[in-house]
């Protein structure tokens, strides 16, 4: 979508190749995440950053399966729209990574 890699392919085609793998990985991430949360519930519930990570995760997931998916599937999306949607997607997922790390550092 940013036109920075696999330039000969449309985003729609790359999405078709990756969606099943992404879904499988997402299931693993969610279940392992729930297991980690359940093992130390009391620590996570009082953590100031953890809820922010959860908000970021919820936003990233909703965005991924709505806006991002819709634009990625478009045959000829306006390049500006495509790039904007991709940048927001990257920022959301990166904020989930930062949220995860900061959960462990800032109590």
């Amino acid at each position: 979508m940013l036109n920075l890699g696999l330039r000969k392919e449309t985003a729609a085609r790359i999405l078709r190749y990756t969606e099943l793998w992404t879904l499988i990985a997402l299931i693993f991430v969610l279940f392992s995440g729930i297991a980690l949360f359940m093992s130390q519930t009391e620590i996570y519930l009082v953590n100031l950053i953890f809820p922010l990570k959860m908000y970021a995760l919820a936003a990233a997931l909703i965005y991924n399966f709505t806006v991002h998916r819709k634009v990625a599937k478009m045959e000829n999306p306006p390049p500006v729209l495509s790039k904007l949607v991709a940048i927001v997607s990257l920022l959301l997922w990166v904020s989930v990574v930062f949220g995860g790390i900061f959960t462990g550092f800032l109590v």
Partner: peptide, 28 residues
């Protein structure tokens, strides 16, 4: 530093996520 270490660690892990994804795609 309260912020520097976790920020650099987060960048390290973000890179691993992006880089790991590219390695996985190529290998598949």
């Amino acid at each position: 530093s309260v912020l520097a270490y976790p920020i650099v660690l987060s960048i390290h892990l973000t890179c691993i996520a992006l880089f790991g994804g590219m390695i996985l795609m190529t290998n598949l």
